[in-house]
Nucleic acid binder design. Structure first.
Lengths: 344, 344
DNA sequence: ATTGAAAATGAAAACGTTTACACAGAGGGT
DNA sequence: ACCCTCTGTGTAAACGTTTTCATTTTCAAT
């Protein structure tokens, strides 16, 4: 009595037609006669038939799966991006398989192999590193891969990013505009392209204001709250060398810097201004609300999947002559963690 | 010159053996002779062969996919749970397909159909609702489904949860122990089982302290920061009726309540104590650091996948006589948002 | 009636695997 | 020499679809 699952053959037998007709009734209804279509329809409901997707995919040589490589699902930063991608993908009939790479190149390679083994039709990279198997792709037929979130230097794949350099420039210019001249920067981990671009923007802004670069004012964090606390303690401990403003490469680190500042009894923004990056939901609810660069993460995800679907839609030869990356605009959100430079 | 992908047949031809032997060399190495194994091995590297997973899955009638239904990927609350599940699944050779249901029963049904159509071997429910197709499953052979995060009343499926009632009881007893007698509760949306259980714990704690229940002290939120702000404004506006403590069903709402309290110039915890729920990373870095119930989310995910893999491992008949849900212990983390009841 | 095109259907090949079955050769015991 | 067991391999059948191609049916125009 073990409920065997119905196959297309069961439907065919039940409807008194061939399996080919059943298949056609489902996928090319216009080519099959009204009456048979109905017979098939009733047979389907009678048997409770659901097409075996794997068999179909084998035949069609596709998987209906889009592979999404993220460095860490646990990081809420990616949540909204995922959400945007998932929405677009499911509208187009694709499923999104999320691969958590933990920044491990081996895991990245494992997942990238899914493309070859037909487990995925396409891939979106959120982790800013190109799996080795893609690195030496022929230039005239790029694989169906889109890079999002972090640009990969020297990589011709379609890319969607924000202009980190410019966004950081604007955030730091906001501080120089407020009269600050001793401005520290808490960056991301070294090697990270985000880190590099945001440091560049920071330095450009200071230079534009005629401020000499002081390497001791750059603290290397890792985007986490804890590293922000460490940065704050390191930068704000000595009243003699203390900057009057700190720009951070993430909101989490900005929060950490503020926590450390409060430990020293410093008031934000009267004694020290702090700006963050990303505009996570908690930035607005913090005390004080944090001035930050809003990064439209959902939009970024949507753009990425749009780019990919375009790519998949137009089957055929694909030139890697890239039209340049798609740039999602950012916005400086001024809240109360930044204010005029205190007069000494 | 379009790089055709190598099949098992290419390997066989290249190695001068049959495809059966190639397959065996890969999956049952002990049954094939040393020399042929080597020949096959070199042939594989020579051709760059990767097995077509879809063909294998069709043959084996499995998908290697575990479907994970979440109400909203965009919600960082789930991030750590996902992460725990993903870890366990990938160790066992499964992939995790995340289905974002947006709390839409139709989408839930769509995804649940994946089980029938062989797109997924098993399912984990994080959304606290049983898709209709599973509701009337035969009692002696439950489908390979595990419920996590929210228990589903009257559902015999394997379940892993925290004891929300008891956790909420302990959080609120913490407040009564501090001498508070007028304690408000900011709950989740109505109908939600988490809401119900946490309200129950709240009421039990007050009752245990001999405090009469006052329905006007329960405010219905939706777990978000904004709803917490609204709750705070509603509860703390009138000095005459103001509670001295507020317990919240999420950390986000606790943050919102604190934001509102500060608007009224109230000090935390001198004027009003606030406790949260979940222990999200931001709870510890808030000002003041928030007393809350730590929910080991990663552990919860790990338990869920463990349960599921057990279930998958022991193929055969499965009795739905449930051994009762697995309960993950919680922990009250006392920080500085809660303190003694102010003497009037 | 006959023809011929158009419409509807069925038979069978393919997609790339795994595996049940059969079979050949190699020893080892009588 | 014979039989018997092992070991290693190949043949071919499945898995459930989609689709090409050929065939049948329909039906309007002669």
């Amino acid at each position: 009595m073990s409920e065997k699952i119905a196959t297309i053959e069961d439907v065919a037998r039940h409807a008194g037609v061939s399996i080919a007709t059943v298949s056609r009734a489902l996928h090319k209804p216009d080519v099959v006669s009204e009456t048979t279509r109905e017979k098939v329809q009733t047979a389907i409901t009678a048997t409770g038939y659901t097409a075996n997707v794997m068999a179909r995919n084998l035949r069609l040589n596709r998987s209906g799966m889009i592979l999404l490589l993220v460095p860490d699902i646990g990081n809420p930063f990616f949540s909204a991006i995922l959400s945007g991608i998932e929405k677009g993908a499911s509208q187009a009939g694709y499923n999104v398989l999320i691969g958590d790479t933990q920044n491990d190149p081996e895991r990245e390679a494992t997942y990238a192999a899914y493309l070859r083994s037909n487990q995925a039709d396409a891939m979106i990279l959120l982790n800013g590193r190109l799996p080795a198997s893609l690195a030496n792709a022929p230039a005239n037929a790029t694989p169906p891969v889109v890079v999002a979130c972090e640009r990969i230097p020297g990589c011709a794949l379609p890319t969607v990013i924000i202009d980190n350099d410019e966004a950081s420039f604007i955030a730091n210019r906001h501080l120089t505009d407020l009269g600050h001249r001793r401005i520290a920067h808490v960056s991301g981990p070294s090697g990270n392209i985000l880190t590099i671009d945001r440091v560049t923007g920071y330095r450009r802004a200071l230079e534009a204001a005629g401020i000499a670069h002081d390497p001791s004012l750059i603290y290397r964090g890792d985007f986490s709250i804890d590293s922000g606390i460490a940065a704050g303690r390191a930068l704000l401990g000595d009243p003699k060398t203390r900057p009057t403003a700190v720009s951070c490469a993430s909101d989490g680190m900005a929060i950490g810097v503020i926590v450390a500042a409060k430990e020293y009894g410093l008031r934000i923004p009267q004694d020290v201004s702090v700006v963050g990056f990303d505009d996570i939901p908690h930035a607005a609810a913090y005390d004080p609300p944090i001035t930050t660069v809003r990064q439209p993460r959902r939009r970024l995800g949507e753009q990425a999947i749009t780019l990919l679907l375009d790519r998949l839609g137009s089957k055929g030869l694909h030139d890697s002559r890239d039209t340049g990356p798609v740039i999602i605009p950012t916005e400086l959100i001024v809240r109360q963690s930044s204010g005029p430079c205190p007069t000494l």
